[in-house]
Every structure is written in structure tokens, then in C-alpha cells.
């Protein structure tokens, strides 16, 4: 799954070593170690509150770690020189309402020694017809595109995007994704957080799954999909013990035999294979329903897995 990157310099662009961050009693990040090697698009996947945004804010130099070490380009992130090659994006599309699109681009570009051409970036993110508009007059999708474009105006080597397509419709989302892929082909390493599996599938090569402030899995896309891409099957009037022994069953949510009559939830990797083997087994059942597990549900199974066995990590392989 690794891309054929041409960069010879494979030192990590960003590195977290044993990083924890607390907000009062809440542990947002719990002893996280992570390397971001040049060349890939890394998806940071996890439910709300998993610690994704906190992790990015540490890399951006906006917050400091409670313990552990954070580096970007070998420097502390609160050193402005470290951020010369870093591209970030404002959250919640918060832009200064009264400034024009062209002015916001110029203002941000002025901070970078080797800024990209404004016109090129505007064309790339479809902002050309909007250059004279004040940002307060933009639609949600247009604001989002401008916010993401700002991350690329400084010709960054590393770009951090926090939920870049939240609130966009399907078309706008696909437009933004292809712009991101083109920027990646030009050499930018991108870290993108999302709680949409679809978004991560469309963009990422390496996926880091987070939950409760910890890294649950760090693998290539296929590896993670194998773990998170679950189906949820519900059945009535079935014997949970017979279901549990069938192929590809990850977990059966039923312990109390008395509840068996009312329904059983089964988490499986391949619902087609499961249904076939269920039918072949001759076990009686009623009211079968299948749907894709939401990420939240997949994470729950993943988290209970992770408690039993250590999180899979293979970033040595990925960063090579």
C-alpha cells in the first residue's frame, strides 16, 4: 500500500514520543507515540472525543503536551521556524468576516518564505470567482474550501487537516478530495482527521485509529479496514451459542439466555458468508437484518479487542 515516494529523506516530519495531554481530569491523549514520515496521506480516524483534534493542536504548536515530547521538523512546534513548512487550517471555518478572499490568502501567504502563487492555489480550490468577495458572504462549502486552501498557500511539506469536509455535500466533498490528492502528488504529506470511514477510505494510505486518547491501530488502509469494516447483523429467535460458532463472527452481543428470544446482535466481517453459513447450519432464526457497522460501533469492538491484545502497529513498515 505504500506509495512509491521519490523522497530520499525519510526522517519523520513530525514525531510524538510518549505524549499525554490532560484537560483537568480528562485525559485527551494518553501516552501516544507516533511518527509521520514524508510522502503519505495519513488518516487519523476515531469517534468524537478520541483525541484527534488535541493531537493536531499539539503538532500545530497551539497547545503544549502535559508530558512527553512533540517535534515537527526536529523542532519544538511552538518555535515559529518549525512551522515555516507546516500548513494548518482554521477550525469551524472561522475566517475574518470583513476581509476579501484574496486578502485572506495574501495575509496568510505573507508569513511564508516560499509561498505558493495565489492564483494557482485559487484555481486549485475553485476560489477564482470568489476572490473579491468578503468571507462573510461565502457559503459554508466555499468557506471550507478557502480554509483548506490556506493550509497549502505556504508550500508546506506537512499539512494538518482537521475534519476538512465536515458539513459539505457529496459533490463538494469529492472536489475537495481531488484537490487534496493533487496537492499530495506535488509532494505534500497530509495528516487528515475524520470520523467518516468513507473519507479515510478515499484519501488515506496509512490509517491511525484513535479511541479514548490512545492509538488503537496504526496500519495501512487495507489492514485497518479489515478491522473496522464490520457488519451488524440482528436476528430474532436464534440460539446465540450456535451463532457464535459460525464463520467470521467477531462478537455476539448476548449473554443472558433469557434475552435470546428478543434478539441477538452479531458483529461479522463478511455478512454474506455469515448468512450463508447460518442458513447451512439449519439453525432457526427470524427477522434477519444487516447493515454496515457505524464507526462508533466498530470502534467499540476494536476497543474491547485492544484491551485483550496490544494495538497493531506497523508504521515501521509504512514509513520505510
Amino acid at each position: 500500500m505504500t506509495t512509491q515516494d521519490t523522497t530520499t529523506d525519510t526522517r519523520p516530519l513530525a514525531r510524538l514520543t510518549g505524549v499525554s495531554r490532560r484537560f483537568g481530569d480528562v485525559v485527551a491523549l494518553d501516552d501516544v507515540s507516533l511518527d509521520i514520515a514524508p510522502g503519505s496521506i495519513v488518516g487519523l480516524l476515531g469517534p468524537n472525543g478520541a483525541g484527534k483534534t488535541t493531537l493536531l493542536s499539539l503538532l500545530e504548536g497551539r497547545r503544549r503536551a502535559t508530558s512527553g515530547r512533540v517535534e515537527i521538523f526536529g523542532l519544538a512546534p511552538d518555535d515559529p521556524r518549525a512551522r515555516q513548512r507546516l500548513g494548518c487550517t482554521p477550525q469551524e471555518t472561522g475566517l475574518p468576516d470583513t476581509l476579501r478572499v484574496s486578502e485572506v490568502l495574501d495575509f496568510v501567504a505573507a508569513h511564508f518564505d516560499d509561498a505558493a502563487d495565489r492564483g494557482t492555489i485559487a484555481a486549485e480550490f475553485g476560489l477564482e470567482p470568489l476572490m473579491r468577495k468578503q468571507t462573510g458572504a461565502l457559503s459554508g462549502g466555499q468557506k471550507r474550501r478557502l480554509a483548506v486552501a490556506l493550509a497549502f498557500i505556504g508550500n508546506p511539506r506537512l499539512v494538518l487537516l482537521d475534519e476538512p469536509t465536515t458539513g459539505l455535500d457529496v459533490d463538494a466533498r469529492h472536489t475537495l478530495w481531488s484537490a487534496l490528492r493533487r496537492q499530495h502528488e506535488r509532494g505534500a504529506t497530509i495528516v487528515v482527521t475524520s470520523h467518516y470511514l468513507e473519507e479515510i477510505e478515499a484519501l488515506a494510505e496509512r490509517v491511525v485509529v484513535m479511541g479514548n486518547g490512545r492509538v488503537l491501530a496504526d496500519d495501512d488502509l487495507a489492514g485497518v479496514l479489515g478491522r473496522v469494516g464490520l457488519r451488524r447483523v440482528t436476528l430474532d429467535r436464534v440460539d446465540p451459542e450456535r451463532v457464535r460458532s459460525l464463520d467470521g463472527v467477531v462478537r455476539v452481543d448476548d449473554v443472558d439466555p433469557a434475552a435470546a428470544a428478543s434478539g441477538v446482535t452479531v458483529w461479522v466481517r463478511d455478512s454474506d458468508a455469515f448468512v450463508r453459513s447460518l442458513v447451512v447450519s439449519g439453525a432457526p432464526f427470524e427477522g434477519l437484518a444487516v447493515r454496515r457497522a457505524t464507526l462508533e460501533e466498530a470502534f467499540l469492538t476494536l476497543t474491547s479487542d485492544a484491551d485483550a491484545s496490544p494495538a497493531i502497529t506497523s508504521h515501521e513498515r509504512m514509513s520505510a
Partner: peptide, 14 residues
């Protein structure tokens, strides 16, 4: 209290 300010803090300026 607005998101623009934390963004400015990420720009490479002291």
C-alpha cells in the same frame, strides 16, 4: 473565542 485566532498562532510568526 473565535477560531481565527488559534489559527493565527499556527502561522510561522513569533
Amino acid at each position: 473565542e473565535k477560531p481565527w485566532d488559534p489559527y493565527l498562532r499556527t502561522l510561522p510568526a513569533p
